[in-house]
Amino acid sequence: MFEETEGAVYGYRCTACNELHYPKHQVCRACAGREFEEFPLEGEATLVTWTKLYNLPEGYMKPYLYFGIVAYGNGIRAAGQLEVSSPRLGMKVATTTGLVKEGGKDDVIGLIYR
C-alpha cells in the first residue's frame, strides 16, 4: 500500500516573528502578524497519541483506519492517518502524503505517517 508521496502539506511561518503554525491561521498567535510563508511538513516526527477508528464516516468503504497526532522537532503538532504495524507512544514516524479520502467529489491528499 506504500504510495509515492504526492503533493505536500504546509506549515506557516510568520514573516514578522518566525512563529510556526499548522494549520493556517489568519493572525499570528505570537505577534498578531498577518503575513506567512509556507514550509512543507516533512521528515521525522514523534507519535504523541493514536487510535484505530472503526465505523468510518460516509464515503469510506474500509473497516477501520489508524490515526495519530505527531510532534515535530520545530514544535509543530499535526494529525494524520497512520500506517505503521504496531503503533506505540513516542515512536518515530516519517512524514508522507497521499490519498486520504476518495470517492467524494474530489480526491483529497493529506498527511500519512509511516
Binding site: 494549520p23 497519541t49 493514536w50 490515526f67
Partner: peptide, 26 residues
C-alpha cells in the same frame, strides 16, 4: 472539525476522543 487539518483526513469525534483517552490513560 478543522476542514483541512482534521475532517478531510477522515477524523471523527470518536477518533479524537480515542486519541485523547489514550493520552489520559498513559
Amino acid at each position: 472539525l478543522h476542514p483541512e487539518a482534521e475532517y478531510d483526513l477522515g477524523l471523527t469525534l470518536p477518533a479524537l476522543a480515542g486519541m485523547f483517552t489514550r493520552l489520559v490513560m498513559d
